[in-house]
Amino acid sequence: MRREAVVDPVTGYVYPEEWAARCASPDGLDLAASGLGVLTASGAVLRRGFTTGTTAAAAATAAVLSLRGPVSAVAVTLPCGLVFTVPAEGRDGTGSARKDAGDYPSDVTAGLLFVATAERAPAGLIFEAGEGIGRFARDTPRFRAGAAAISETAMRSILEGIRDAMAAIGLPGVRVRLSIPEGAAIAGKTLNPRIGIEGGISVLGSTGLVEPWDDHLSESAFERIRGAERVVLTTGRIGLRYSRLLFPDHEAVLVGVNLGRALDEVGGEAVICALPGLVMKFIDPAILEGTGCGTVEELTATPAWPGIMARAFTRFRADRPGVRVVIVDRDGGVMGDSG
């Protein structure tokens, strides 16, 4: 009996039939079809984990629901639109969840405990970011100094979970405080101190899921690159979405920080289309030197940015004449095009 094509609901990628044929586990194929797994070229299925944003949403939701009674798991709507049941404990207004990194072996936040407390309020929703959540040391294009390092997508997931829990138990108002007890200690193992985020980790997640990059990219992504007639490489989920819109006749492949290896696999012409952060540091590792900026995003908001970007494009074209670089912003606007 022939099985229907397996489609990744997170990316929309239709897995090749031969990959599915190599998978000996029907449960593995079901996991890939659900979005919680990634089917690789060998037939192995690697498990996606949950982001810090999803974990925070689970803890906050459990805290609110526990005002009615004990909780052992909660449903979380992820930014990618999928809904999953996430393990979380809740009792007497305190909720907790641990970060599940899936099959991503290098995730320094794996197992990290998130704790939320909820108390009834007369009306409305009050959310507070507590200990272990990093804060911006200076203004950035999207955040003011002192603001909690919680991305917009992660915040939406947290607040949506709280509101759903309030509706479920008929609560007119609530105050929720989220903390990550070991967040400050773990932050030293992340890039946060170098990019001006102090006191803890960031709460992030553009899809709500953690990709098993270390293993996944060695097989499926690079096989797709080698087999594509025209390929556009990108570094994250936002870039993937706009790569597909801007280059519909190209195979769009998300490679994260592995741009160098991905370009080596192409061996010819390619397009890089992504947000500026990883790409600009790849084509010019010294791009921030002498600018006074801690991140590329911060640099994009300065008057010097257009000239710096143009010079980086010129140098990169000389090194890799067959590679076109298109930089987009978070709304899909083209900030620069080396082509």
Rank of each mutant, 00 (worst) to 15 (best):
D8E: 07
V14N: 00
W19K: 00
S25M: 05
P26Y: 14
D27V: 08
L29A: 01
L29R: 07
G37T: 05
A41S: 13
V45W: 03
R48W: 12
F50Q: 03
A58S: 05
A60P: 01
L65N: 04
P70R: 13
S72M: 13
S72H: 15
V74Y: 12
L82Y: 03
F84S: 00
A88G: 05
E89H: 14
D100L: 13
D100R: 08
D103Y: 07
D103F: 14
Y104N: 10
Y104H: 09
V108P: 01
L112W: 11
L112I: 09
F114R: 02
F114A: 10
V115Q: 03
T117M: 07
A118H: 09
G124K: 09
A129L: 06
I133R: 01
R135H: 08
A137V: 15
T140S: 09
P141A: 12
I150N: 00
S151V: 13
E152V: 13
T153W: 12
E160S: 12
R163W: 10
D164F: 11
D164Q: 15
A165E: 00
A167F: 04
A168I: 15
G173N: 05
V176N: 03
R177N: 06
L178S: 07
I180A: 14
G188I: 11
G188D: 05
N192F: 03
G196A: 14
S202T: 05
V203N: 06
P212Y: 06
W213S: 07
E219W: 07
I225L: 10
E229C: 07
V231P: 02
G236Y: 06
L240S: 10
R241A: 03
R241D: 01
S243Y: 00
F247I: 03
P248T: 11
D249P: 00
D249L: 12
E251C: 09
V253W: 01
L254N: 01
L259Q: 01
G260P: 06
V266Q: 08
G267R: 11
P285E: 15
E298G: 05
L299W: 02
T302I: 14
A304M: 12
P306Q: 14
G307M: 10
T314V: 14
R317L: 14
P321M: 12
V325G: 02
I327H: 00
G332C: 05
